[in-house]
């Protein structure tokens, strides 16, 4: 399952996550999302138990762990999209900038515009590239064509896709390659100016070159927004993230957050033996 090219858990050319994290630690990191004692249930089955975690502003937080450890389920609680997908039930508290997103009067549409999401499979709509990017904007307002044009261009530029598609904006989004489709989805999400971007294994359906492009993009985006990324690929986690959360299952197959820290802590000096085993590729 793990895609190590060498037994060494560290990539040959790390993007120096330690340094990145430490640089920003000089000013203490601000938590954008604060998760307190979160448990998730599918029907009666408990899938995730007792998660406490802070997601820091303008950092990439990677969530790693073996299959079935609930990392994807956890991610989908942060914009409440999980409950749309299945009969997911939540206990505990998730705060976005100090406000409980599970409050009764939460406006889900508003929440999801602030916490965007990129899915495992690129899922552009069956409409033109332009309309894909404009979709989220048009959901709440009807801006003039020139304003919309600017917003679409800016989003496509931020997603590093503009140069590839600027002449074919009316082409169907489905006609793009897989990697381009995923960047289109990122552009689409950026167009509504989210504060946080959730990414659920965004590269798992892509080839290595497309994957590198997305990683480079993530590297740029974190200057502007907060990213939470679930990944199976530990090299990827170590390359792009400042913080890493390791999820695993206990003996009852219930997902738990085992350890959370800066990426260098998790990969180099993890406290929990199971974390050390996992990042060393010894299980999962």
């Amino acid at each position: 399952m793990l895609m190590f090219s060498s037994p060494n858990p560290l990539p040959s050319k790390p993007l120096n996550p330690t340094k990145t994290a430490q640089n920003k630690e000089e000013q203490p990191p601000i938590p954008v999302i604060h998760v307190q004692d979160l448990s998730c249930f599918y029907g009666r089955h408990k899938a995730v138990e007792g998660v406490y975690i802070d997601i820091y502003e303008r950092h990439v937080t990677a969530i790693i762990g073996p299959s079935g450890c609930g990392k994807s389920t956890f991610l989908k609680t942060l914009n409440r999209i999980g409950e749309m997908e299945s009969n997911l039930r939540i206990q505990g508290r998730v705060e976005l900038l100090g406000k409980n997103i599970y409050a009764k009067d939460t406006n889900l549409n508003q929440l999801r515009r602030q916490v965007g999401m990129i899915f495992q499979q690129p899922n552009p709509f069956a409409m033109s590239i332009y309309d894909n990017v404009a979709y989220g904007i048009r959901t709440v307002s009807r801006p003039s064509r020139s304003v919309l044009d600017d917003a679409v261009e800016s989003a496509l530029r931020s997603a590093a896709l503009w140069d590839e598609v600027k002449d074919n904006l009316n082409q169907s989004g489905l006609a793009l390659s897989g990697g381009q489709q995923q960047r289109l989805c990122i552009a689409r999400a950026l167009a509504v100016n989210p504060k946080v971007l959730l990414m659920d294994e965004p590269c798992s359906a892509l080839d290595p070159i497309a994957t590198l492009k997305i990683e480079a993009l993530i590297h740029e985006l974190k200057e502007k927004l907060t990213i939470v990324i679930v990944t199976h690929n530990m090299q990827q986690a170590s390359r792009i993230s400042g913080y890493t959360a390791f999820f695993s299952t206990d003996e009852h197959r219930i997902g738990q957050l085992v350890e959370f820290g800066t990426t260098s802590q998790i990969f180099l000096e993890a406290e929990q033996p199971s974390t050390r085993d996992y990042v060393a590729g010894r299980f999962g």
Partner: peptide
């Protein structure tokens, strides 16, 4: 994109008109 950074307040509610 920069304006997305500035507000550190969440506006889940009260909700904007649209």
């Amino acid at each position: 994109m920069t304006e997305a950074l500035e507000p550190t307040q969440s506006n889940l509610s009260p909700v904007p008109t649209e």
